[in-house]
């Protein structure tokens, strides 16, 4: 028998709670209960990571419920790597499939996606965005063929529920506003410029436009795709904001 079987696996199984039976052989009957020091640490560290990484989900459902969700999540998806900053990517998907949430809070998984997009933007690669001065001095007709991509911190999201409204009001409003679920589908984008995280809702055509930019198409091609969804698509409405807020990547060519 090796250390692995006689030592590491015995402790490991005791910590994650699947099998305590061999611990007494290792540490003696009088000390088996002490594993709780390690077990408690494992549960607290992992669960508090999930809770702090999904602050709006936690706020919406309350302390007890989020702790229960985090516990179930940790059982199903224990952390694989030692960097807890990377832990919890699967939580929105877990919520989507978890029956009690599905039944009572069908919009919660979408809110979790926004929490994740925020955290992703927060820790994404630093990139120089496309700046106004990069465009100045270019022939007007050269602009439509630019295909800059979006910055690495950007996430484009679409929801069948008004998840962005729920998330946004809980994220930033002093007084939380009512949200009508009948509002239906929503689209949103989250990204970071320098140390500032930006987010906004999009029209479907704007979402299509940005999705195509992200896919490597030019402004002109992306515009043409967006017009298919909305003949009245007004690129002008948001373009200056996106540009000044650094949503487009600095290299003129998309790396994809």
């Amino acid at each position: 028998m090796s250390d692995k079987e006689e030592f590491y696996e015995v402790i490991s199984k005791s910590i994650i709670g699947v099998d305590n039976s061999k611990l007494a052989d290792l540490v003696g009957d009088n000390y088996v209960h002490r594993i709780e020091a390690h077990r408690g640490n494992y549960r607290m560290s992992t669960q508090s990571t999930i809770i702090s990484a999904y602050p709006i989900v936690a706020r919406l459902v309350g302390d007890e419920y989020i702790s229960g969700l985090a516990q179930k999540f940790v059982e199903e998806f224990p952390p694989k790597v030692a960097t807890l900053t990377q832990y919890g990517d699967e939580f929105p998907e877990f919520l989507r499939k978890f029956a009690p949430v599905q039944k009572d809070l069908p919009w919660l998984s979408a809110v979790a996606e926004l929490d994740r997009a925020w955290f992703f933007a927060y820790s994404a690669k630093d990139q120089v965005p496309l700046r106004v001065k990069d465009l100045q001095g270019k022939a007007a007709l050269a602009l439509p063929i630019l295909a800059p991509c979006l910055v690495a911190s950007a996430s484009l999201l679409r929801f069948t529920v008004p998840a962005y409204s729920i998330w946004r009001t809980n994220k930033q409003d002093d007084e939380v506003k009512p949200v009508n679920l009948r509002k239906g589908a929503q689209w949103a984008v989250v990204w970071r410029k320098d140390n500032q995280i930006n987010h906004q809702s999009l029209t479907q055509a704007e979402y299509v436009f940005l999705t195509n930019i992200e896919g490597g198409l030019s402004f002109a091609n992306s515009y043409a795709e967006a017009v298919k969804y909305d003949k009245q698509f007004d690129l002008q409405r948001q373009f200056s904001h996106w540009l000044s807020a650094g949503l487009f990547k600095g290299d003129e060519k998309c790396a994809n």
Partner: peptide, 16 residues
């Protein structure tokens, strides 16, 4: 130690 078989225990466990 803090890892075994693809689980990270977020802890500093005593080695054998």
């Amino acid at each position: 130690w803090s890892k075994l078989d693809n689980i990270y225990f977020a802890d500093l466990l005593p080695p054998p």
